[in-house]
Design a protein around this nucleic acid. Structure first.
Length: 422
RNA sequence: GUGGGCGUAGCUCAGGGGUAGAGCACUGGAUUGUGGCUCCAGCGGUCGUGGGUUCAAAUCCCAUCGUCCACCCCA
């Protein structure tokens, strides 16, 4: 019989990997909540219109990468390609912006129909933060400080750099767009093919081009930073001041733009050299107009998202394994199943914190001990006719040279708990 | 969507028209109540899938699926 495979670009997280995931998730959750963010979980499926309105019709994510569903009835549904739109929808639907301050975090799978490559899959996990209702740059700085703290907790701060920029307000961008077009249109023929296409769609993105000639042209292009209005400029300068005061390293990248249309003012991105072409591990920015666009009362917002798989790949390079937790004890038994199970349950009741595996595969002691060893358990607990008769259990140290000892069953769980490693 | 590399045992890979291989892992034994080290034996693959060429295809050709890398895009 032919066995089926997972669909393209969607990967299983196997037991050997899940310990690292849990470790990462627990660090993120701890830090998010330490800063007052609360978890929000929204559906994987939303009305397609939510994403097209929020993210911009002409962005690639909308144009080419959405997973549209063939749903019953005439509803147009899509798998979510990012987290912010759904969070904003939920927040408005449930009136959570009244009063208008809210800090939320999320973590879950996102879907984009792209060609898979290193650091890019069709189903991937993002963890993200959204903070609503704070207009000043202090929240921008706090968010950046929080993420910097996370990099330190994960042990990857040496391998990531922070870039920031300001996209200005909507009017600034519209005006700058014209200025940029005036500069680029006469040079159109010298741009690479992709950038010529972007000239019509989203000229700001031409700054992202990897083509050498295009880059040279963009070097002399008018700068967005010169087009900022006084209000956006002050916001950005204050943010830089906060970051300096917090001793956070950053570089201002005037070419840093976002792929989603809802961003304005502050944008930022952490990159690494270690992951090949997909080097961005966390990115975000302000979306002060998004809530109003979605039909809510005008409320400033800022958010970011990080790619979990990319983070894990970075972490894997730093720490070799070490995430797995091993069981405390592995029960080896020659007794009938009802006795084995009864004694295992007894130990679990007496020692609620114990991690105990009972060997239910059976077979010779040799085979059971082999599995006990493979389980990485600290102790093997041995049950045979002698132990059953005397109401005892034999404890063998699998990770050291301690003498094998016999414990009364009444005290066994307590002894094991007290002698747990770590 | 474009270009290139790769799919052979659970894993890592060798083999490139003529009987399907190695190491590790796994199972059993040496050791009938004791794992790890050693030794011995064994299990395990319609060579990704479907077509084609050939007396003969894992091997050559075509298609397709998957995977990896880059472009693009982005977390």
């Amino acid at each position: 019989m032919k066995t089926l495979q997972a669909v393209r670009g969607m990967h299983d997280i196997l037991p050997d990997d899940s310990a690292a995931w849990q470790w990462l998730e627990s660090i993120l959750k701890t830090q998010f909540e330490a800063y007052g963010y609360e978890e929000i979980r929204t559906p994987l499926v939303e009305q397609t219109e939510l994403f097209t309105k929020a993210m911009g019709q002409s962005t690639d994510v909308i144009e080419k990468e959405m997973y549209a569903l063939q749903a019953r009835g005439d509803a147009h549904l899509s798998l979510r390609p990012e987290g912010t739109a759904g969070v904003v929808r939920a927040v408005l639907q449930h009136g959570l912006l009244n009063p208008p301050g809210l800090k939320a975090w999320y973590c879950g799978p996102m879907f984009r129909y792209e060609r898979p490559q290193k650091g890019r899959q069709r189903q991937f996990y993002q963890a993200g933060l959204e903070a609503f209702g704070i207009e000043g740059p202090s929240i921008d700085a706090e968010l950046i400080a929080l993420i910097s703290r996370i990099w330190r907790a994960l042990g990857i701060d040496r391998h990531v750099v922070l870039e920031i920029n300001s996209l200005g307000d909507r009017a600034d961008r519209a005006q700058y767009r014209e200025t940029l077009l005036d500069y680029l249109t006469p040079l159109r023929d010298q741009l690479d093919e992709d950038s010529q296409r972007r000239l019509d769609l989203n000229p700001l993105r031409i700054f992202d081009s990897k083509n050498a000639t295009t880059q040279a042209i963009m070097l002399d292009a008018p700068k967005l930073s010169d087009a900022l209005g006084p209000s956006a400029r002050t916001h950005f300068e204050q943010l830089c001041g906060c970051l300096d005061a917090l001793d956070i390293n950053y570089t201002i990248n005037p070419g840093l733009v976002r792929g989603l249309d809802y961003y304005g003012r502050t944008v930022f991105e952490w990159k690494t050299e270690q992951l090949g072409a997909q080097g961005t591990i966390c990115a975000g920015g302000r979306y002060d107009e998004l809530i109003e666009m979605q039909g809510g009362r005008a409320t400033p917002g800022i958010g970011l998202a990080m790619g979990m798989e990319r983070l894990l790949e970075l972490i894997r390079d730093q720490q070799q394994g070490g995430f797995k937790t091993s069981p405390d004890a592995y029960l080896v038994s020659a007794l009938a199943a009802e006795h084995t199970l009864a004694i295992a349950e007894r130990l679990r009741t007496d020692g609620p914190a114990l991690r105990l595996i009972a060997d239910l595969q059976g077979g010779s002691f040799k085979a059971q001990f082999k599995r006990a060893d493979r389980s990485a358990a600290r102790w093997a607990l041995v049950l045979g006719d002698d132990e059953l008769e005397q109401g005892t259990i034999t404890v063998k140290d699998l990770r050291g040279n301690a003498e094998q000892l016999t414990l009364n069953l009444n005290q066994a769980a307590e002894w094991l708990e007290q002698n747990r490693p770590g």
